[in-house]
Design a protein around this nucleic acid. Structure first.
Lengths: 343, 343
DNA sequence: CTGTTAGCGCTTTCAA
DNA sequence: TTGAAAGCGCTAACAG
């Protein structure tokens, strides 16, 4: 007595064989229909399709992948879910993946490292077809060796060790420059930069320096190491604001460090924006929180995600050119943490 | 001429066959060693292990899964990555999964629904061994039918339609009660509750009502529908704060609605906590942001995640009992948004 | 204790 | 056009 797999209610998931049997054709014919290959008679095609829907058949991606066709999943390597920047980036990615039927599999690097695991390994074990690394994960080394086997796309960060990968970033130099110019236009002359990690941090610093120099404020430059999180931003802002010559404006590496700077100002009895103006970076949803209302640099985050996904898709599709670089423009969003310089 | 798969540098990933060949044993012997089955001589075992490490062999989970042993991945269904509550929950989950070698695959329901896809289907296509649904995803219907085939664990939400699933939650009644009592202890007598969605919202309301009643404040009860996000919290808080009899204390459904309430108070020219105290729920990292410093209810979020993961693991391991319910205790974290009632 | 054999569900030659 | 057969990498049942 064999198990009945032909009725929808049966326990076992229907296989391609069940479909074939029900449609009165062979396995491979079904396969061809499913992959919409040409050369199948219309009658048989509809017969198959009908059987598929009657059975509620779902092709088993595992088997498909094993037979050599990829898993239809792309790994998304995030370094810390806490950074709200990712939310919108993921939105962009998902949107671009949707028509292709590719599923994003998110893995959080910070959490995994805490439990002593390699996110990249997790993703490879799942046999993802490509990996999109978001921001700086601290697992770059793994990516370098990986990129030979699996397409890698870097989003919002640069290739730290000449990985052969596509790169999608915001225009960090221009964005930081805009933020700084925004403050300069408001009359600020002492402006500090809270520097973030990696090349992105440096590029933003460069934009900041350019704006400062162009405005003839050269010797007012203060750049302090501020990391990428709230706590480090707080510490850095405190140092800067307690200096002999206190800046009236702060350009922060990202929104989180900016939030930290806000707290630091508050703790020092400085009001914002009356005593000190703060501009963040990335324009995450946190910046928009009414109570915070943080001025920030809009980064085209959604577009970065979408473009990264597109690159990944192309690589999966077989594109084999050299690593590409795509840069998305930035703009400033003025909210309530930036105002005219105090007299 | 066949491809050389025995040297580490070769393009193709080594298979169990390569290992067997190199160790001079049979495929199945290797398989046994890898799954640490008993009954293998020590010499052969070490030989196999050596070959494995020399080749850098990684078992192909796809093949393993196809052969009937699960994918070693469990799907994490999140309804909106924007809610910081998930961050810590995921931390708890990952921690519990680590020793078992199980990988969490995160899927964001909000994003998928936006692009018209079912998160559950994505997860099932990946053939996850179990699904942990976090909070209220709006995809409950799918879970109901699913739970017959794949273990489902609900975390931070209750079974809306008698799904046969394990459930892990915070003690919502007690938590809301604590929050309300915290305000009462501070002298507040007019306290409003910003109600959230679903059963969780109701349970928190219940805790709130109990505390109010116990304190003999019965007719001061104001419960307003406030959703789960900042915007809806803002709208709700405005309604409540513009009423003839303005409350001096607000218990919010979660931190996000509380943040919205903070903004509403601010926009109405009310200072917090001098004019109105606000208590959030979940004690997410957002509550801890210095500028916000939101009093909140700590929910044992990490523990909820860990327990949910444990349940999932047990189900995967074959546990087949009826749906279990685990409740994690709550406590209040007083920060700067709650203070003595105004005179 | 060890090796052989037969699938898991799918794709992919290759004949018919 | 269609169908049969081989095989992806692994596990499991069985015989040596």
């Amino acid at each position: 007595m064999t198990v009945d797999r032909s009725s929808p209610g049966s326990r076992r998931a229907p296989t391609i064989r069940d479909v074939a049997q029900r449609a009165g054709v062979s396995k491979s014919l079904v396969s061809m229909v499913l992959r919409s290959e040409p050369g199948v008679s219309p009658e048989r095609r509809t017969a198959v399709l009908q059987a598929v829907s009657q059975l509620g058949y779902e092709p088993n991606r595992l088997a498909r992948a094993l037979a050599g066709n990829g898993t239809g999943a792309v790994g998304i390597l995030i370094n810390d879910l806490r950074n709200p920047w990712y939310v919108e980036l993921l939105d962009g990615i998902s949107t671009a993946f949707e028509p292709a039927g590719v599923a994003p599999l998110i893995v959080d690097s910070a959490t995994n490292q805490r439990v002593g695991r390699s996110s990249i390994q997790i993703l490879m074990r799942q046999r993802v077809d490509a990996i999109i690394a978001l921001g700086t994960s601290g697992e770059e080394a793994g990516l370098t060796t990986l990129s030979a086997r699996t397409p890698v796309v870097l989003a919002g960060t640069y290739d730290p060790a000449s990985i052969d990968a596509d790169v999608v970033v915001g225009d960090d130099v221009a964005g930081a420059r805009l933020a700084t110019e925004h403050l300069i236009a408001l009359g600020h002359r002492r402006i500090a930069y809270l520097r973030g990690p990696e090349l992105v941090g440096e590029l933003r610093e460069q934009g900041y320096r350019e704006a400062i120099t162009d405005a003839g404020l050269v010797d007012m430059i203060v750049a302090d190491e501020a990391g990428a999180m709230e706590e480090s931003g707080y510490a850095s802002a405190r140092r800067v604001l307690e200096a002999i010559v206190r800046p009236t404006g702060i350009v922060a590496y990202n929104d989180l460090t900016a939030i930290g700077a806000l707290s630091a100002a508050q703790d020092l009895g400085l009001s914002c924006p009356d005593d000190v103006s703060v501009v963040g970076y990335d324009d995450t949803y946190i910046a928009g929180i009414g109570r915070l209302s943080l001025s920030s640099v809009r980064n085209g985050t959604f577009d970065i995600g979408a473009m990264a996904a597109t690159f990944a898709l192309e690589r999966i599709g077989g594109f084999d050119g050299t690593g590409r670089l795509h840069r998305v423009p930035s703009s400033v969003v003025a909210r309530r943490t930036s105002g005219p310089a105090p007299l």
